[in-house]
Simulated assay, not measured.
Amino acid sequence: MKIAVFMGGTSSEREVSLRTGAAILNSLVRQGYDAYKVDLTAENLVTAFTDNDYDLAYIALHGEFGEDGRVQALLDMLGKKYTGSGVTPSAVSMDKVLTKLIAEDIGILIPKTYTSVEDIENFPVVVKPAKEGSSVGIYICNNKEEATAAVEALKDKKLLIEEFVKGEELTCGVMNGEAMGVLKITPKSGVYDYTSKYTTGMTDYQFPAQIDSKVYDAVMEASKKIHEELNLGGISRSDFILKDGKAYFLEVNTCPGMTETSLIPKIATLKNYTFDDLTRIMVETFTKIKDN
């Protein structure tokens, strides 16, 4: 079996994807798999999938043209097996607005959301792209003027406007329907931005999260429900903010990072999974015939 690890891509998360892909490829090779790197760029966005020889596409892509269902649709048309979620689950999960509507519908607590600046009832609010990750393009706005400026700065993107819930950051990993544990994130700068996420030593991680056991269980259950309701495949990671004993759901990642500072490998240790276990389980899961 030949495995192509697709990484890079054309989104704002290209560099993170390259690091994720390199770590996954190293793990696969270390375990004896016949795996190789495919760096996805604007020049080979389609031919990378049509002109390479592989039995399984291991997707290590983040953001648009990788995590949003378009690559998955191409692979489906080519009849190729691939890791992670299928077309519709990927597309819906990539859109934070749609995801939150679904989460709210199944009884999961979310921050109050607004459709426009004029609808905002209380500040501060967060204005961010509905289809970006890695804390790209996030604005915390304390008044209408700042919110208007943020919307203008992101005018070419679909936006999510929601109340800014200040609290402890939590995240929970789910693999093949199994909630693996909850991790608490404490950035030393006070803000879990791109630098805090991807710079070693900039953030403290506590796993398992030392929080009330009922909240811990509720986050585990909510993450599993999101995974199941959206029909996600493989590994997902749901993010929350804990305030006044309540965990607010923020978003779900269908292709979470697997770099040296990433959260999923840390969470997986709570179930005694190593990094190599994660990649092996993904290969074993998706080399079987599946319905996307």
Rank of each mutant, 00 (worst) to 15 (best):
A60L: 05
E64C: 10
E64G: 10
E64V: 11
F65A: 14
G66I: 12
R70I: 12
V71I: 14
V71F: 13
Q72A: 10
Q72L: 05
L74H: 11
L75K: 11
L75W: 06
M77S: 15
L78Q: 04
L78Y: 04
L78I: 07
L78N: 03
G79E: 15
K80F: 06
K80W: 05
K81F: 00
K81G: 00
K81V: 00
K81I: 02
G84Q: 07
S85C: 12
V87H: 09
V87P: 04
A91D: 04
S93K: 11
M94R: 12
K96C: 03
T99K: 09
K100D: 02
I102L: 11
A103Q: 07
E104L: 06
I106C: 09
G107E: 11
I108Y: 10
P111R: 07
T113K: 02
T113Q: 05
T115M: 00
T115L: 07
S116H: 10
V117F: 07
V117S: 14
I120D: 04
N122Q: 15
F123E: 02
P124R: 03
V125K: 15
V125H: 13
V126G: 06
V127N: 13
A130T: 06
K131W: 01
K131S: 15
K131A: 14
K131H: 10
S134E: 14
S135V: 15
S135N: 13
I138N: 01
C141N: 02
C141Y: 07
C141I: 00
N142E: 07
N142K: 02
N143M: 12
K144H: 12
T148S: 12
A149L: 14
A149C: 05
A150S: 09
A150N: 08
V151W: 13
K155R: 09
D156C: 01
K158R: 06
F164Q: 07
F164C: 08
F164I: 01
V165Q: 00
E169Y: 00
L170H: 03
L170N: 00
T171Y: 01
C172E: 01
G173E: 00
G173Q: 08
V174Q: 04
V174I: 14
M180S: 07
V182C: 04
L183E: 01
K184Q: 13
T186E: 15
T186R: 03
P187T: 03
K188Y: 12
G190S: 05
G190T: 08
Y192N: 00
Y192I: 07
D193E: 14
K197V: 04
Y198S: 08
Y198P: 06
T199C: 05
T199V: 09
T200H: 14
M202L: 12
T203G: 02
D204L: 12
D204M: 08
D204T: 13
D204A: 06
Y205E: 03
Y205K: 12
Q206C: 03
F207I: 09
F207Y: 14
F207H: 11
